[in-house]
Write a protein that binds this DNA or RNA. Structure first.
Lengths: 106, 106
DNA sequence: AGTGAACATGCCGCTTTATGTATATGCGGG
DNA sequence: CCCGCATATACATAAAGCGGCATGTTCACT
């Protein structure tokens, strides 16, 4: 589970990350926003923490969870060789890639 | 499992996709390259097929599996808002983020 | 027709995962 | 000092994922 791919495979964890993208949040905040039980949130946060995708800062009883997105770069890196393949959908968006092609009817 | 995130969560399936990135392959080719049993490969291919990430072309007994990477764009789309966050790693490391802060001793 | 190659599917077992309830811990306020 | 809030962990459970083996199916070739 330590790998980033497995971490973002769960929809609830993706929602957590999306929420933390705005600003750091406490566990209670996340519980309210997600609509699942507090232990469930804590367990997802544990997974995210052990994967290095979030960090915790203790403030009295509150725990502020903050996004640390660096590990997500591994996903982006894997995805990189595929990205050009759908880049030419809908619009120009990658039209400049065609400079590498010898397509005569373009 | 239909969602792209779950599809790429499995390392074997990522290897399959990486192999298909070069060119279409038959099941036997993939079995040889992956070192797992043929039924296992067939099952992974089923998952990839149902997720729309690969297509099949029958040629006699051979089945040529071809990459169809469009569904992977969903992963890329989700990742997009995070991408800038690690773009400036190694150097100034988010120095421009400090413009939002009212930190006097920065 | 028979045989073997290529592939899919069924079945079984094992491990992991996701979630809930119940309980422990830590801290601040009265 | 005791109580309640915030969070983590323990325990139980149901479900899903991955793997292999055995078997079915289809087709080319002789």
């Amino acid at each position: 589970m330590s790998e980033p791919f497995a971490v973002v495979a769960d929809p609830t964890r993706r929602r957590v990350l999306d929420l933390l993208r705005t600003r750091p949040r406490t566990v209670t905040e996340l519980v309210d926003a997600l609509g699942v039980s507090q232990p469930t949130v804590s367990k997802h946060l544990r997974v995210l923490r052990e994967a290095g995708v979030v960090t915790v800062r203790a403030e009295a009883q509150r725990r502020w969870y903050e996004l640390r997105p660096e590990p997500l770069a591994a996903i982006d890196d894997w995805l990189a060789p595929y990205r050009w393949m759908w880049a030419d959908r809908l619009d120009t968006l990658g039209r400049h890639l065609d400079t590498m092609e010898d397509d005569p009817d373009a």
